[in-house]
Nucleic acid binder design. Structure first.
Lengths: 198, 198
DNA sequence: CCATTCCTATGCATCCCTGCATAGTTCTGG
DNA sequence: CCAGAACTATGCAGGGATGCATAGGAATGG
């Protein structure tokens, strides 16, 4: 005796929010922008997100984190020389195709300041999850246990940093060079010689 | 036959803007915030910065870039095992003492979106300058020429990325671990054995 | 001491954003 | 077909933010 809720529109709003977070950051993303870009009306927002702006932003960060976590785990079987360039390629393509405006939404959430503590918290958890995933992957690829976590931390830091620098310079080289260096480094740390783990 | 201009107050406004950029990003830093924190009045802002908000933000980024460039060149004679931890230490201390709210203002400018193109441009130039400075330093420290630029790019990326991750997680470990890894890496690339360059 | 210039204080117009309320519209189950 | 639920459209109040204008205070050269 009632109309069914339509999750598609909510998803579109969340997705649009994620895109705007990447381009304008947390403070720069307004509900009016989202409404305009998603083709929704202001009234809808408070229907789908009773918690207002904070809930909308938090959901967008959650969506982004889940997506990238999935992408990371999907690469778990690939050797460094394939996995690392693939990860970097995701960022490079999105950055370049957006005209060097779209970065990592999780970084945006991390730097969003105290205005959105939930988004910030989610970003912190995301980095922890990703570090754990990369750590496990390195172990699988023959890197000694005592080196995996520290290397994972370096990989994530370097990639996120290279995306920022690439965006600022409107160039893909920083990302590509970092990928090369990281491949070289991880290969040198493998117990098994490169190629044996394929 | 006139009163002399007082650059001290302008400098204080620029400095306050720089601090707010670190904590709240470009979009999150308003002129009213700056005025309140710097103890100035709104009227003063348009006296010192006829270009309005954009000019104020751009000057703050310029100040930050100059300061960090100076800091980098001051370390030019130190070996990796001292220079890298010192650089990271600057970020760690400021992040920790701010209650994990203050990051790198140049990163903030880089991610500020299209709203402040001048600040973004300055950030891109800053990364180029810093890459050149680190490249020269690596050469001085005995790293082969064909490796210096790529390694410099990795150093900057990793450090900037580690600051972001540390802020998000309210932990200093990401920065400290990255410093250790980078020292280890650079030492392994030196032609001269560690210690000989002192 | 006084005119000129630097700087400050304050107010206004305009616009934007958020959050909420309210009325209307669409869809579904019985 | 129609009652009720999901959803949309729009308007309003409150609060800020920006940019500008204008009037007043402070310091300095003559």
């Amino acid at each position: 005796m009632a109309r069914r809720p339509d999750p598609a529109k909510r998803d579109r709003i969340v997705h649009t929010t994620r895109e705007l977070l990447r381009r304008r950051g947390v403070a720069g993303t307004t509900m009016l922008d989202v409404v305009a870009e998603a083709g929704a009306s202001r009234g809808s927002l408070y229907h789908y997100f009773p918690g207002g702006r904070s809930e909308m932003v938090a959901d967008a960060v959650r969506e982004a984190v889940a997506e990238y976590t999935d992408a990371l785990t999907a690469l778990a079987e690939l050797p460094p020389a394939e996995a690392i360039p693939l990860i970097v390629e995701v960022w490079r393509v999105e950055a370049e195709e957006s005209g060097w405006t779209a970065g990592c939404p999780v970084v945006a959430a991390a730097l969003g300041g105290e205005s959105e503590p939930v988004a910030r918290e989610l970003a912190g958890q995301a980095f922890a999850e990703w570090t754990a995933a990369v750590t496990a992957w390195l172990a699988l690829q023959g890197v000694p246990e005592e080196r995996t976590e520290s290397l994972a931390n370096l990989l994530l830091s370097a990639i996120e940093g290279a995306v920022v620098i690439g965006l600022a310079q409107h160039r893909s080289e920083p990302m590509l060079r970092v990928a090369e260096e990281l491949v070289r480094l991880v290969e040198s740390e493998r117990r098994t010689p490169p190629g044996a783990g394929r």
